[in-house]
Design a protein around this nucleic acid. Structure first.
Length: 554
RNA sequence: GCGCCCGUAGCUCAGCUGGAUAGAGUGGCAGACUUCGAAUCUGUUGGUCGUAGGUUCGAAUCCUACCGGGCGCGCCA
């Protein structure tokens, strides 16, 4: 609908230019937006006002020129008005709106998809927590946001790969192995002075138990250089399995788990360092190697090889990103906790040094979550072993409700997650409001079938029967869905979809309370059934993108 | 000290990349089930958009300076 109007206005402008009514200049792209108020018609454009300063003419004068030269050959527009400082308001013929439903119904589960991405390859990397402990609530938000961004991009025609980067090569891993081995010895009766900097959680002891059960005292009796690495590998593998399971229960499934270790095995880090050297982006200070990230706008240079000769995490991360691009991704999106924001400029420096454009990377920062229980903050520290795991949250609050909750705010705003509140108020949770709308639609359709109505096809309905303002408002909302998804994709903002769902559900509930869908009036019933079915399609598609179920009954 | 994010109704938050009279939810108050599901709906209450300037036809949105809150500033990851 919007596109057609843009064409009309564009054509009118061309006509004005040809006839010399307007001076030839670079015309900026025409923008048309859906209006907020009925009095302003269905759509409005500010084109005249934008051109006014360019042409040095009165905006209302330009507006009237545009209006006079519109050739609405297909008869779509009911009325055009010039309003306020120079807005052009378009009133579309009502029937046109109803006709849009044919498209919704025809595309069904594909309604809302677009070709914006043109098949470009995008990778979304998220969660990427060290396998040193179970995922907690803080990871959950990043997990949902990453997952939904991937879904949105997929719906927009991008070829998307979801990836989890396993940081399994650092000191933390050695520490993990050490922690488990000490607990193991403790369980076998040895008196152990357990250090404060080791992992404190109960899960470490559980892992030690497992090892005792499987291997007895073997690793105590046969201690060697490989012993700690056995504990490390065992623990990391087991914890990672747990992470995968928690994510799966949360509806988050990755296409790829990428191990940091493989970067070293393939000499990726070494190759990267050589590349930076060859390109002249590094300098040496004794054994330390510095990368001149200031060349790319960072506030200070960063170390890539430490004094002890080992590459830093940063060096590995650049190598990792290089690897991503070598795998053929046109664009890479990193979802990070907001506490890593200081890291953003150096990552941009990194990808530019390996010859990538800044556009090839987007970093989405997700604010950390404060977990509350009864309004009181729950102290969370992986190291101290005090945390509520993602698995516990999902078990307690439910997948749909917790996902939806994380998606209700912009990712860069703070979020309080109160467990007791989430449980106690579960009936008032917005997710149920939306799901209820969907269940209600299913119920209406069931009722209609019971009373002998068939699910109508577009050809069966009389489009002139849907004339109520509420019905047109619903159709308008439905019509905006594809633009909404595209907007979410461009801005990488999943929360827009939850707001859309709430708005659409609200329009529907209100309509439902005021009007009867299934009645004795056969024509009207068919028309309304068709409308309601289309609303259901859109709700279902929106919820699917959010990874939230659309129940037929509740 | 420097950098990033946030500041909008009593509370929690939107505001579609600069548009017309700033919106939801929640809370308070008053109503609606003999009829497709009341996990719903209707009405009402509620604002110096942190403050002060600037940019222009037009600013919650962009620029500058302050105020207040969070985070970061390691050869940790």
């Amino acid at each position: 609908m919007k596109q057609k109007l843009i064409e009309l206005v564009k054509k009118s402008l061309d006509t004005c230019l040809e006839r010399g009514l307007l001076e030839k200049k670079d015309i900026p792209p025409i923008e048309i937006e859906a209006t907020k108020e009925d009095a302003h018609g269905d759509y409005a454009t500010n084109a005249a006002m934008v051109l006014a300063s360019l042409m040095k003419m009165n905006p209302r004068k330009i507006a009237s020129l545009i209006v006079e030269n519109i050739e609405d050959t297909e008869g779509r527009v009911e009325k055009v008005e010039i309003a306020g400082p120079g807005f052009i308001n378009f009133f579309m013929k009502d029937v046109l709106w109803v006709k849009l439903l044919a498209e919704v119904n025809g595309k069904d589960e594909k309604y809302g998809e677009s070709t914006l991405g043109e098949g470009r390859h995008v990778q979304v990397e998220f969660v990427s927590a060290n396998p040193t402990g179970p995922l907690h609530i803080g990871h959950a938000r990043g997990a949902v946001i990453g997952d939904v961004i991937a879904n949105i991009l997929t719906a927009c025609g991008f070829s998307v790969s979801k990836e989890y980067y396993i940081n399994d090569a650092g000191n933390q891993m050695n520490n993990l192995g050490k922690s488990v081995s000490l607990r193991y010895r403790e369980l076998l009766g040895e008196s152990v002075d357990y250090p404060a900097d080791c992992y404190q959680g109960q899960y470490i002891i559980d892992l030690a138990h497992e090892i005792v059960e499987k291997h007895g005292t073997y690793y105590k009796d046969n201690e060697s250089e490989g012993t700690v690495s056995f504990f490390t590998d065992y623990a990391a593998g087991s914890i990672l399995d747990g992470i995968k399971k928690d994510l799966e229960d949360f509806g988050v499934v990755f296409d790829c788990f990428f191990s940091e270790k493989t970067l070293y095995h393939d000499n990726g880090v070494e190759k990267l360092l050589r590349e930076l050297q060859e390109k002249g982006y590094v300098y040496h200070d004794g054994p330390t190697v510095w990368f001149k990230t200031t060349d790319f706008g960072d506030e200070k240079d960063r170390v890539v090889v430490r004094e002890n000769g080992e590459p830093t995490y940063f060096a590995a991360d650049i190598a990792y990103h290089k690897n991503k691009y070598e795998r053929g991704f046109d664009k890479v999106i990193d979802i990070w906790g907001a506490d890593h924001h200081g890291y953003v400029p150096r990552m941009y420096a990194g990808i530019q040094a390996i010859g990538k454009d800044k556009d090839a990377l987007d970093v989405v920062l997700v604010q950390l979550v404060s977990l509350l229980r009864d309004g009181k903050p729950v102290a969370m520290s992986t190291r101290a072993g005090e945390f509520v795991t993602l698995g516990e949250v999902v078990a307690e609050v439910g997948k749909d409700a917790s996902r939806y909750n994380f998606l209700m705010r912009r990712s860069h705003s703070h979020l309080d997650f109160d467990l007791e509140l989430a449980k106690r108020q579960s009936n008032e949770n917005p997710v149920y409001y939306v799901q209820y709308a969907h269940a209600r639609i299913s119920s209406i359709i069931r009722t209609a079938i019971e009373r002998g109505y068939a699910i109508p096809a577009y050809a069966d309905i009389d489009v002139t029967l849907l004339t109520l303002p509420e019905e047109l408002a619903l159709i308008r909302a439905i019509d905006r869905f594809p633009e909404l998804i595209e907007g979410s994709a461009i801005s990488l903002e999943p929360h827009r979809i939850t707001f859309f769902c709430n708005d659409l559900a609200s329009l529907f509930h209100s309509y439902y309370n005021k009007n009867r869908v299934v009645s004795d009036d056969e024509g009207l019933t068919k028309a309304r059934l068709f409308l309601v079915k289309c609303i259901g399609i859109v709700l279902r598609n929106a919820l699917r993108i959010l990874g939230v179920s659309a129940p037929e009954r509740m």
